[in-house]
């Protein structure tokens, strides 16, 4: 589904971060959002997902014909928005299997008539696909997971929840090449006319495996450059200073 951000200004109570973001990802497309550290990429991810810590001072966010700005974080998730966290949170005492079952049930609106055996089958298939050991079903969510295991778990959740729009916040950071390919495989498998995504990254590396339809560059809370995939190579060659200098 398409995502439309119009003149979004947001930040922490004492700090303006997003200085008016306008961005549209049409249905079926995958866009990359690049930018140096501190440019506001993660803030945008969190604001899209509805993090209560951030204040939106103006602007609008919509997904299809749903006005996301008016929804709480959990309503956005149920409506089909997914955020793959840069730093997935450890939740002791809750197993992956139990947690995901509940999340999938809520996402699909199937409370009370949820088919558990179909769910488990699908979960196992997706785990195999991503190379995650089945033992993780009974482990507590993210507790004691390595960095790579946490990121795979985010992608597993994305595959199970089948979002209409996904925001992947530096899902590639800190991954070795094998893990990176697994993450890319997860995104590519969802690719299709009903799915669109914003892949936030600091490096071009993941974009070798997930080909973006368009690339946006963010600096100091603003989108300063948008264009085709060729921008990636240019950034790689010249660095972010090239964009800053050309402002």
């Amino acid at each position: 589904m398409n995502l439309k951000i119009e003149n979004l200004k947001a930040g922490l109570p004492d700090k303006k971060i997003l200085q008016g973001i306008t961005l549209e990802v049409p249905a079926g497309e995958i866009h990359a959002l690049m930018g140096p550290n501190g440019s506001g990429k993660s803030t945008l991810a969190n604001v899209l997902a509805g993090h209560p810590q951030y204040e939106v001072s103006s602007g609008n966010i919509s997904m299809g014909d749903i006005n996301l700005s008016e929804l709480e974080a959990y309503e956005r998730a149920r409506a089909g928005l997914f955020l793959a966290f840069q730093y997935p949170v450890e939740v002791p005492g809750i197993t992956v299997g139990k947690f995901l079952k509940r999340a999938v049930e809520l996402r699909r609106g199937e409370e009370g008539r949820f088919n558990v055996s179909a769910y488990i089958k699908e979960l196992r298939e997706n785990m195999d696909f991503l190379g995650i050991d089945q033992k993780f079903i009974n482990r507590y969510l993210n507790e004691g997971f390595s960095g790579g295991e946490k990121k795979r778990m985010e992608v597993l959740q994305m595959l199970m929840l089948k979002p209409d729009f996904a925001v992947l916040d530096e899902t590639d950071s800190g991954l070795d090449i094998d893990a990176l390919q697994v993450v890319a495989k997860g995104i590519n498998t969802l690719r299709g006319e009903d799915f669109s995504a914003l892949v936030i990254t600091h490096y071009q590396r993941i974009l070798d495996y997930v080909k973006p339809d368009r690339v946006h560059v963010m600096v100091e809370g603003r989108i300063v450059l948008s264009g085709g995939p060729e921008i990636v190579d240019e950034l790689e060659a010249k660095g972010y200073d090239w964009v800053k200098d050309s402002l």
Binding site: Y74, F85, V91, L106
Partner: peptide, 9 residues
């Protein structure tokens, strides 16, 4: 936030 971002109230 992590859990609400997965659809839990």
């Amino acid at each position: 936030f992590y859990l609400t971002a997965r659809g839990l109230s």
